[in-house]
Nucleic acid binder design. Structure first.
Lengths: 154, 154
DNA sequence: TTATATGCAAAAGCTTTGCATGGGT
DNA sequence: ACCCATGCAAAGCTTTTGCATATAA
């Protein structure tokens, strides 16, 4: 599902920022590039700060500000953390995915499911609400007898 | 859906705590009573601290410790917060519910849906994982033309 | 040249921990 | 009498804010 959209997202991000009147800066650009490269599934703000520091770019303040900006422009989703840590992932225009968290390892695997999306839509209709976003988080353990990762998304 | 189970949960909590070798204390008892009364849908740790302080019971440290204990014993669920805030709700043995968050007001409404539960189960099976817990959070706005609250859970 | 982006350091929350004390059993 | 539960205060973390400086446009 990903691959191509990384570039498309990068282009989209550049365009939206420019249209919104933002100037370009080294730190935010670095955040954007990192997200395009590795942000297809949750990345914590702390991780991002750390990665960029290794590269000698950015500061905590700037990274948080950049992520907030991207979030406001709808370029990234903020994903709830169980531990008061901000996590982000790029808002992929091509597909919507959810998360499975392995309770033993803490690893997060993305997955997609059409029927799940459909049911969520019908639930929203039943409740009489207009849906803007939705998250599904499954927690458990990957079965030992499972050969590959559980992330075999369809 | 609730009503009866508040009492049952209270009894369950007392029993499990005793069986696990805990003694009873004023602060934890107050937390438990508050959860039984109002914890059927998310309550933040801060809220709990505040409520109990008004009643002249408990301190932040004790409340957090009590909630952690209840969580370890499986008596409450910790619900992800978008803002680094610990939220809890009682683990209702009778039913499982999810949350709709009104983006405008911040209000949280619980809802249940059988088909959603079923689909989540089949997704877990397809992924080859053993499910221990799952959360679904819908975000959006309640439609103006909707008469009552969106929480009309079937 | 002017407003924005950045970085440092300090502040602000929420949560956890240390330690002495009070209260169950 | 034990020793767990509690409360206060201090420490720890992540995230936010203030302010001076560097830099796009």
């Amino acid at each position: 599902m990903s691959g191509v959209s990384a570039e498309r997202w990068l282009a989209l991000a550049d365009r939206r920022l420019r249209e919104a009147g933002y100037r370009s800066g080294s730190a935010r650009s670095a955040v954007i590039e990192l997200m395009a490269r590795e942000g297809h599934c949750v990345l914590s703000a702390q991780d991002i700060v750390g990665r960029l520091r290794q590269a000698g770019v950015g500061s905590a303040a700037t990274v948080y500000r950049a992520l907030e900006t991207l979030h406001e422009l709808g370029l990234v989703h903020r994903v709830d953390g169980r531990d008061g840590v901000a996590r982000y992932e790029i808002a992929d225009p091509d597909g919507h995915h959810h998360h499975f968290v392995d309770e033993r390892t803490g690893e997060v695997w993305p997955f997609e499911d059409e029927e799940l999306e459909r049911v969520i839509g019908s639930v929203a209709e039943r409740l009489g609400v207009r849906l803007l976003a939705h998250d599904v988080t499954l927690r458990g353990t990957a079965r030992e007898d499972t050969p590959g990762a559980p992330g075999a998304t369809t």
